[in-house]
Design a protein around this nucleic acid. Sequence first.
DNA 1: CGGTTCCTTTGCGATCGCGTGACGATCGCG
DNA 2: CGCGATCGTCACGCGATCGCAAAGGAACCG
Lengths: 237, 237
Amino acid sequence: MAAVPPRLLLVEDDDSIRTSLRWALEDEGYQVDEAVSGEDAVRQVAGSPPDLMIVDLMLGAMSGFEVIRQVRRTRDLPIIVVSARADTHDVVAALEAGADDYVTKPFEVKEVTARLRALRRRAGSGAGAERPAEVVLDADPAAPLVLRPDRGTVHRGEEQVHLTLTEFRMLCELAAAPGRVFSRQALLERVWEHGFFGDERLVDVHVRRLRTKVERDPGAPQLVVTVRGLGYRLDPR
Amino acid sequence: MAAVPPRLLLVEDDDSIRTSLRWALEDEGYQVDEAVSGEDAVRQVAGSPPDLMIVDLMLGAMSGFEVIRQVRRTRDLPIIVVSARADTHDVVAALEAGADDYVTKPFEVKEVTARLRALRRRAGSGAGAERPAEVVLDADPAAPLVLRPDRGTVHRGEEQVHLTLTEFRMLCELAAAPGRVFSRQALLERVWEHGFFGDERLVDVHVRRLRTKVERDPGAPQLVVTVRGLGYRLDPR
DNA sequence: CGGTTCCTTTGCGATCGCGTGACGATCGCG
DNA sequence: CGCGATCGTCACGCGATCGCAAAGGAACCG
């Protein structure tokens, strides 16, 4: 799944359902927090908002509808409702309140996790934070250096910096994990499709060409840094 | 709702269900297109992609699953499945194939429309599906270049610019994400229905033809820009 | 301080990617 | 049937880009 597991808040007062759901969800790679009442849920969301929620409609004092409305006032996270009532009015009301999906009990856990995945796919691809369209490599206030992977461009301030394909790919690769050292071998495998079976020194040449275009002072590289004996590393500023 | 009503493609082979759904959906403000088979649906999506889809799983030759997969290869629009089968395996399979929601027959129309709204809220807030009636590709004050996707026209000032179907589709695709690089492969999949299995260089030829009609100076293209090694990109001005 | 290893820089020929123009096949329409 | 419009394919040519090799430097080590 992700490097850092998504946090899911499970709002359910029935102990046995809560527990079985929790197990399945943890199997799916979620980090599960629990809430046993509406008030509890709202409090937890305010304190440390999760990435997703599963809400039972049948709660004590505060209804599930109210929980959803409260959460929606401040957060846009995916919410799935589970409920014993299959009545259309409840479904409509829950969705109107701001829920994203509605599952009736008894439900199979498999279905809930599948719906969660579908919802995450949809919510994540949109406004979400998946992959930035823009990476700032050098925050020079006068002329920042900006990489836009999906546009195939690099800009120094207003000016577009022209990179060759290899240079561009290499920069993207390095920018994917800023600060981490990439061995020449790793770069050859990742930048050159279908791998490459030649001299590792080739990387050096391209690094150099990249530097002349991207560094403030190519004579003293600060952005694409050499790590002697290991490889190269990107140091954004 | 929106100024221009959202277009919904209803894929359902049962006449009575299709008709009743259509009425309800039109009441909700959707412009409804219909498809009675999987092939029909895929063709319509390729030709003029709708904003949303409702797909019945039980179709003739091509299953609903296959329809979803085909559509998902190129489009990110919200898809709701309706099906007579309530089996969890089907639900999971449909969601895995790329559907966003799954409703079992018999269903209340109210519930479907409520789920549509919830889905649109989620999908619309993100990267977004607004289809502008007009896209200004070149803001030349004397003779602006304007693309009207839903009318199938392009104008340079008062003059209409005549494009072939392929050229027009290609321009629309590029205009759907201005600034983003499209690989030749991506363009072949999106512009040519049923995909295309020939030489990628075909794209070049059509780009060239498009340029002669659309660029101020076809000798030095500024609008449809080549990104060497990657593909093409639209740079509106 | 000298040797060694590793990195930088440079120049050049081979190759690749793209633009261009031309051609034949096909389709729709009068 | 004949015609024009459109499409897919191809070969050519040019410039951009790449891979390589070899000659400097720079950093490390005893």
